[in-house]
Computed example of a mutant assay.
Amino acid sequence: MLVDSHCHLDFADFDGELDTILDAARAQGVRAFQTISTRLSTYQRVRAVAAAHDDVWCSVGIHPHEAGPEGPVAAETLIGLAADDPKVIGIGETGLDYYYGKSPREDQIRTFEAHCAASRATGLPVIIHTRDADDDTIAVLERQMGQGVFPGLIHCFTGTDRLADAALAMGLSISISGIITFRNAEELRQTVKRVPLDKLLVETDAPYLAPVPKRGKRNEPAFVAHTAAFLADLKGVSAGELAMATTDNFYRLFSKAVRPALSAAAG
């Protein structure tokens, strides 16, 4: 059993095909999916996808690219959207992206801090996107953790040893995308080798970042199997052990998600 811990099933890339795409993933042993919110203005679309499928969960939040256009958000707004909704299991994605700079840094930081506060209040993990912003990401997390610890993970991890060490020291998990399979990702691979197996999750970030051997194509949840197989080899464990560990890690971190009962034959 595998879990695609981070995908964007509400995106137009999947219009008219979502049922077929999910069935293809299930055939590859993917038994749960988390579809991720990037804008509050489109959150109801995300929620509708989760509501339509028993094995799809969702988050609520604002991507750092959208921190400016979406305007300031209060932690209370995020808390209210997550409250008493059994399908909402995470807060985000949020964080800092200084590579593209699509939103002012001060807006990104303010929004990131609101998400951390919502995570602390709800107990739901904060889902963190960070690119070219290691120092400020660590600073925000340390400042927010100082007000009370909260769960979370760095999604689509591409950071440095320093970021990985800081995240792990704060109790965060690390999620691995298809980037780990790319030819130019050797530095990332060396960092991920150091991450304990009980802190790793796998994801697609579909429709983006298809892993080798699907690179260049639209990514979809079934392809998480390729990333998981590559990661198992990198970590020196069997594919089954990797699948079991990352699935256990997902349900331990996103504890609001209900784990399906599987027969022995289903694996």
Score class of each variant (00 low, 15 high):
I91N: 02
D85L: 06
G80R: 15
P69T: 09
I89V: 15
A82I: 00
A83G: 11
H63S: 04
H63V: 12
G90C: 13
P86S: 03
G80M: 14
I62L: 01
A75I: 03
A74G: 13
E76F: 07
A67G: 01
G90P: 13
A74C: 11
E76G: 10
P64T: 12
I89Y: 00
I62G: 01
L81T: 12
G92Q: 00
K87I: 09
A67D: 01
P72K: 03
I79A: 06
A75K: 11
P69Q: 02
V88C: 06
K87L: 14
E93L: 07
I89M: 07
G68I: 06
G71F: 07
P72L: 09
V88Q: 04
G92N: 08
E70D: 09
G90T: 12
P69K: 05
A67Q: 04
I91E: 03
H65R: 02
L81A: 14
P72R: 09
K87R: 15
H63W: 01
E66S: 03
P64Y: 09
P69R: 08
V73P: 02
H65F: 13
K87C: 05
I91L: 13
E76L: 10
E76D: 14
L81F: 13
P64I: 15
K87N: 06
E76T: 15
P86G: 04
I79Y: 11
A83E: 11
P64F: 01
A83N: 05
P69V: 10
E70Q: 10
D84M: 13
D84L: 11
T77W: 05
